[in-house]
Design a protein around this nucleic acid. Structure first.
Lengths: 167, 167
DNA sequence: GGAATATTACTCGGATACTTTCTGTCCGAGTCTACCAGG
DNA sequence: CCTGGTAGACTCGGACAGAAAGTATCCGAGTAATATTCC
């Protein structure tokens, strides 16, 4: 959280996205505990818990405590973009932070430079905007649908495994 | 080097880009030492040296040792894209690395999944491609030109300061 | 005076500590369920 | 048989270490320029 955003991505993003797809397949009827999601993907339970907490803080998933509790999607999967998940985990701050070094040194940028931002920061901003737009164009439902279109048995197997687990 | 590429960008990228713009203004006649570039921007000399070494390894700049040595652009600034500089510093590897967790857990993805890559990795790849395309569209000469168009005195002052420094 | 040579000073290059971030883990607070006792 | 209370177990939530990467720095190898000396 609160880091930057376009050169190095945390590994938790991948886990969070897989968890969201699994939650989309499970349906909103009953929430899924962290232990179940972790076992589904062979991930360490406590760390996945950390990521889901970040998603809950961002309003992507809802957490219900107590017995039979767990996590569930806060909105229909069609309304959850990949960008929402990425920003929930890695923060909304951009990857490039301009330190305004043009104002340092023996030749500081004059008052004229204050009108427009640093050209370097401008290019980086454009690139990050393009990156964000691409991520905002895909939703969790889209991901689930594409996987199901290629391997239709996947969601069925997952739902069956979940049903057998809850008993 | 060898890290990833789209969520967190190193600070050295900003310094390297500023250094390249300064080198473009200085011209290829005589190379500039690291100390001069560092003093121009008020940066710590030894660390900037590290970044320039990375640029030299990537073939963006040439280094000439000995007295009156220093760094100079290896190509005309019109042929150096921002992406070249970024990749020289932060590496060419993408920001998102798919660990193929769909093959782990109690329901590993079957043979059908091997045909196409993970959908999540696919989206990330598209987003990073858009990011790279935006950075590849701008060159060092373009940056220098835009700055000169807004504040025309900037390159003149820098050339004068360099001339006074070399004596 | 000219040329070869040894010296000198300056440059890059890689190897070395320190700080910040990310990864991974643990235990406590809160809540729903189920059971049990009483009416 | 129905209802209220209570004990239990399960869940999330934030606080706590370890590891990795990034940041900042230093000193040595190599080279060009320069001053010197010899012819």
């Amino acid at each position: 959280m609160g880091t930057i955003q376009v050169v190095k991505m945390g590994q938790g993003v991948e886990w969070a996205l897989h968890a969201c797809v699994n939650l989309a397949w499970a349906g909103p009827e009953r929430p899924l505990p962290v232990a179940t999601l972790a076992e589904l993907n062979g991930l360490p339970t406590p760390y996945l818990n950390k990521q889901l907490q970040a998603l809950a803080r961002a309003g992507v998933v809802t957490s219900t405590p107590g017995a039979r509790g767990g996590f569930a999607l806060a909105r229909p999967p069609e309304e959850i973009t990949v960008l929402d998940v990425v920003q929930a985990i890695d923060g909304t701050e951009g990857a490039f932070r301009c330190t305004e070094i043009r104002q340092q040194g023996p030749l500081p940028a004059g008052r004229g430079a204050f009108r427009s931002p640093c050209q370097i920061a401008s290019v980086m901003g454009r690139a990050e905007a393009a990156w964000r737009a691409e991520l905002a164009a895909e939703t969790v439902a889209g991901l689930a649908g594409e996987v199901a279109a290629k391997v239709p048995q996947t969601p069925v197997q997952i739902r069956r495994w979940l049903a057998d687990r809850t008993g």
